[in-house]
Simulated assay, not measured.
Amino acid sequence: MAKTMALPKDQLIQKALKQMQGSLADNTWTVREKLALTCRILFDNGHDSGLAGQISARGPQPGTFYTQQLGLGFDEITASNLLLVNEDLEVLEGQGMPNPANRFHSWVYRARPDVNCIIHTHPTHVAALSMLEVPLEVSHMDLCPLYDDCAFLEAWPGVPVGNEEGEIISAALGDKRAILLSHHGQLSTGASIEEACVIAQLIERAAKLQLLAMAAGSIKPIAPELGREAHDWISRPKRHSAAFNYYARQCLRVHGDCLN
């Protein structure tokens, strides 16, 4: 005899959340390993625009963060070749230099103490959508972690190597987890590396779906209350961790060297 068929939705949601806490396992990778995995995951899923883009995660001391070397593509990043830098982009650990565009990461970290990972890339569909100077439209259930959570910067401030760009981008991001940058790309953030990775994956899929839908007709909006409900339901640390673990299993079947 079924016991849950008459339960209201809010009780079923709470029951599922409790089950997730006990059933979905966390991973044990280090910060360096999760960053390397994220680079390979993103590279395999369209975030492969040469040397463009950066990834970072807060380091062990305030004002420090891990990032990749300038000159290496995302498909070449390993746990051992990442750099530890300070806010002035001075290398504290590792060999080589960081991307000078990492400067705006320092501004975002200063403005957002809740952010522990930043991913900036120029994937194909995000880049194409950015050329139209239109915001991201979230109108599908799968995309709802971005519902009312993706900012838009319409004016391109130029190459992001100055402090001016850091101020502009961090201000435009505001309290959102992602931002579409016109004539540029995307920036995704997360309280964890897992969350930032999932958001970066999602924004490229969202841009692709938006372009496909725009080519076929006018995009119809979803009800705001349902968009917010789906946002909160999907945007859970356990869900992000489970999704990341799935992507990582895919990645490691091909890129086992990234954990070196």
Rank of each mutant, 00 (worst) to 15 (best):
S80C: 11
E164Y: 11
A16C: 11
L136R: 09
H183D: 09
M214K: 15
L72T: 11
H125I: 00
I41F: 01
Y66S: 02
P100E: 03
S192D: 07
P98D: 08
L84C: 03
H47G: 08
Q69D: 09
H183E: 08
L70F: 15
A206G: 03
C39F: 10
L132Y: 04
H240A: 04
Y247L: 05
A111G: 02
I203R: 01
S182F: 06
V85T: 01
K208M: 08
T189A: 00
R32P: 09
H122N: 03
D48E: 12
F104P: 00
T38P: 00
A230I: 13
G71C: 04
G162L: 12
A213W: 07
I222M: 05
H122F: 10
S80F: 01
K15D: 12
E154A: 08
N45I: 07
Q54M: 08
A6H: 13
P60R: 03
C197D: 04
E165R: 01
D148N: 15
P60S: 03
D142N: 12
V161I: 15
V108W: 10
E90M: 06
A2P: 15
R236V: 11
P145M: 07
G174H: 01
K18F: 12
R228Q: 15
L42T: 00
V126F: 03
D75V: 04
K18W: 10
